[in-house]
């Protein structure tokens, strides 16, 4: 199809996008009919309009929301990591301190808190006596054992004396 025919078709809005591309290519090339210069200017105009860009602008709300959603995870992660680390350090210090002090802890019983600690004191005292009696039993059995050993040695000594005399 001749270019003039395509031009007619174009202004009747009968051209397909492919045919319009042929026109665009024809008029933006160096080999065009000089009689059609005015149409060339028109197609150059269309091309220049197509290249208009607004520059980089973006609504602040989108930018903020996007950056928020983009960085929130990282910020939160660091935040939670810092909190978790702080708790861990506090727990370790507290645990160490408690452990080192719990054996040295002493309860001072005064007139004011006597009733409060009376039962506890009784319980602790009984517990202590029980432990002492247990210990005494252990000592007693140990003494018996020592006596038994001693007797055995004496028997053996007697036996030896008998044999080597």
């Amino acid at each position: 199809m001749k270019i003039e025919e395509l031009i007619e078709k174009y202004f009747e809005a009968e051209t397909t996008p492919e045919e319009e591309n042929i026109l665009k290519e024809y008029f933006t090339s160096a080999n065009y009919d000089k009689k059609l210069e005015i149409y060339r200017q028109y197609f150059i105009f269309l091309n220049s309009e197509r290249n208009i860009v607004p520059g980089n602008f973006l609504p602040a709300s989108i930018l903020n929301e996007n950056s928020k959603s983009k960085t929130s995870f990282n910020i939160l992660s660091y935040k939670w990591l810092a909190i978790a680390a702080s708790f861990l350090i506090i727990f370790i210090i507290a645990f160490t301190y408690f452990k080192s002090n719990v054996n040295n802890a002493a309860i001072v019983i005064t007139n004011e808190n006597f009733n409060e600690f009376k039962d506890l004191g009784t319980e602790v005292t009984f517990d202590a006596f029980f432990k002492i009696s247990e210990y005494m039993e252990y000592v007693k059995s140990s003494i018996n054992d020592i006596q038994a050993v001693n007797e055995t040695f004496q028997i053996l000594q007697t036996y030896n004396l008998m044999n080597y005399q």
Binding site: I52, P54, F57, L58, P59, S61, I62, E65
Partner: peptide, 22 residues
């Protein structure tokens, strides 16, 4: 820009349109 004929107004309209799309 084609409809309004104004660069600034077109920018505002596109910003509003982008917010709606967002």
């Amino acid at each position: 820009h084609r409809i309004t004929g104004s660069y600034e107004d077109a920018k505002d309209i596109v910003q509003e349109s982008l917010i709606r799309l967002w």
